[in-house]
Design a protein around this nucleic acid. Structure first.
Length: 137
DNA sequence: GCCAACGTTGGC
DNA sequence: GCCAACGTTGGC
């Protein structure tokens, strides 16, 4: 199983909305690197849900429930979506500011490639963030 | 609202 | 295939 981090502006689609909806199609990705990551996602992979711009924090966990298929909102036919389901909110959201201050998280893609919206997370980073948030493994 | 970072486009 | 111009993202 692999771990990921997906970003959304809460104004556009928030984790609270996902909690309410139960599951959602992750559409609108228009970046090749992000698309390539979407295409690597497998059913059962888990992802942190990060709120960009507003909040700037990891707020919860979601899970891949359907692997990539063509994005119906993309007319060029180049991009894909996956379906994700709500898993649970983090006990305490982990802010960008906090991530920047943690030595073990200095190489996280979120800091290295701030504009990428779908990125892989290592096991170590996943566990570290869970631990910081106060969630048990 | 500004600006840095960076991906994409298009002319050559 | 290079590179300048342009557009977008996202932190501040």
């Amino acid at each position: 199983m692999n771990y990921w981090l997906v970003k959304s502006e809460p104004d556009c689609y928030s984790f609270e909305k996902l909690a309410k909806d139960g599951r959602s199609m992750w559409d609108g990705v228009r970046n090749f690197q992000a698309r390539n990551n979407l295409m690597k996602m497998k059913v059962g992979d888990q992802a942190f849900f990060y709120h960009s711009n507003i909040g700037k924090e990891i707020v919860g966990i979601c899970e891949v429930v359907r692997e990539h298929y063509p994005d119906p909102t993309d007319e060029s036919g180049k991009f894909v979506v996956v379906d994700v389901a709500h898993v649970k909110p983090l006990k305490n959201p982990v802010t960008l500011q906090l991530i920047k201050s943690v030595p073990k998280l200095q190489n996280i893609a979120l800091l290295k490639q701030s504009r990428l919206s779908v990125m892989p997370i290592t096991n170590e980073e996943w566990n570290e963030i869970l631990s910081i948030s106060g969630d048990s493994l």
